[in-house]
């Protein structure tokens, strides 16, 4: 078991290295911070721009390969992911933002999974009844709405609620009100800030889980082993809830691999829409600032999240399915 995970881990590290390197080379050959520098007032001379960028390790006159080697050496020897054109250090900046993002995603991931699976089971049990049709129709609807537009609509709804109630119940932007005293008030403030983005991500995310869980459970309802359980003297519902349900979790556990990156990507948009200073909004800003190092760092972060998702999925599958347990 451990060896298996270790093997997977090594493969993923290698993959992350490749994707990150490819990302860096792409970024370094397309992003040109020098152009932005030249728009400053007073307009710096080209020499000044080169000097200023060289000081930050971003010399635009080196060819992409030389810069890649420098950059990689920095990471491997000093774990230094470089600097932004404005002088900020990537390591520090990243450290601040990664927790903001993680906090946002964690609640959403758990809610998405729990609600999606629960609704899937519920709708499968009421197959072809009105509640099943309504829940499943919603899930299909969620599939054809682009995530950022859905977030925006949730934001609009929250604003409408605030307007209707005449007071600010939800905060639709930002992560906290500055200058709050620690204690109960701060907690309420935090919840009020978290509520809308978390609800938005969850609302969009659970659909695919609901559909998948419903389908897998229905596939297993008439399985031979359910028939065996009924032949023992269990009622149909008992047999399904004790036997079919557990088996139907197996493919859902496998699909965690793709949820975590998906929610992460959704988080990018959520941060942008709700103005959260997380990794996602940083990355998009970094790109518009022609910031090679920041863009690459966020790309690496995305790959790591994917790998974590894949390993977690392996782990979850082992947990629910004894057949894959390694002897």
């Amino acid at each position: 078991m451990f060896r298996y995970l270790a093997k997977r881990g090594i493969t993923y590290v290698f993959m992350i290295f490749l994707t990150t390197s490819a990302g860096y080379l792409l970024a370094v050959s397309t992003l040109k911070p020098a152009l932005l520098e030249q728009e400053r007032i007073p307009r710096p001379t080209p020499e000044q721009v080169v000097n200023s960028l060289s000081l930050k390790g971003l010399n635009p006159e080196l060819n992409p390969w030389e810069r890649y080697v420098d950059w990689l050496t920095g990471i491997v020897t000093r774990w230094d992911w470089g600097r932004s054109p404005n002088g900020a250090f990537i390591n520090a900046e990243f450290g601040d933002r990664v927790w903001i993002s993680t906090r946002l995603f964690l609640a959403s991931i758990i809610l998405t999974l729990v609600i999606g699976v629960a609704l899937g089971v519920y709708s499968a049990a009421r197959q072809y009844k009105f509640s099943d049709r309504a829940i499943t129709a919603y899930s299909y609807l969620a599939y054809i709405v682009p995530a950022p537009i859905a977030y925006f609509l949730v934001q609009l709804a929250a604003i409408n609620i605030n307007d209707t109630l005449g007071k600010r119940v939800f905060f639709v932007t930002g992560i906290s009100t500055p200058g709050m005293d620690p204690g109960w008030a701060q907690f309420v403030d935090m919840v009020a800030h978290y509520a809308v983005p978390t609800i938005a991500i969850t609302l969009v995310g659970w659909g695919s889980y609901q559909i998948a869980q419903r389908q897998y459970l229905l596939d297993n309802v008439n399985a031979d082993f359910v028939r065996t359980a009924r032949a023992k003297g269990l009622t149909r519902n008992q047999a399904i809830s004790r036997h079919a349900l557990r088996v139907s979790f197996i493919p859902v556990a496998q699909s965690i691999a793709f949820t975590i990156p998906a929610i992460f990507a959704g988080g990018f948009f959520a941060e942008k829409i709700f103005a959260w200073p997380g990794v996602g909004s940083w990355s998009i800003d970094a790109i518009s600032q022609q910031d090679v190092n920041a863009a690459t760092a966020t790309l690496a972060y995305g790959s790591v999240i994917f790998a974590i998702g894949a390993i977690l999925a392996d782990f979850a599958t082992t947990l629910v399915d004894p057949r894959v347990r390694v002897q």
């Binding site: 993959m15 992350i16 490749l18 994707t19 490819a22 990302g23 792409l26 970024a27 050959s29 397309t30 992003l31 040109k32 152009l35 932005l36 990156p261 992460f264 990507a265 990018f268 990355s283 998009i284 790109i287 518009s288 022609q290 863009a295 966020t298 790309l299 995305g302 790959s303 994917f306 790998a307």
Partner: peptide, 29 residues
């Protein structure tokens, strides 16, 4: 398969952003 999985791992979003935002003289933009 390895190449394919590596591509799946790449956050498409960021690559799109890089490709379409790359400000630059020589870029495909």
């Amino acid at each position: 398969l390895f190449f394919l999985e590596a591509l799946i791992m790449m956050p498409a979003l960021l690559v799109v952003a890089v490709a379409t935002n790359g400000g630059g003289g020589g870029s495909f933009k």
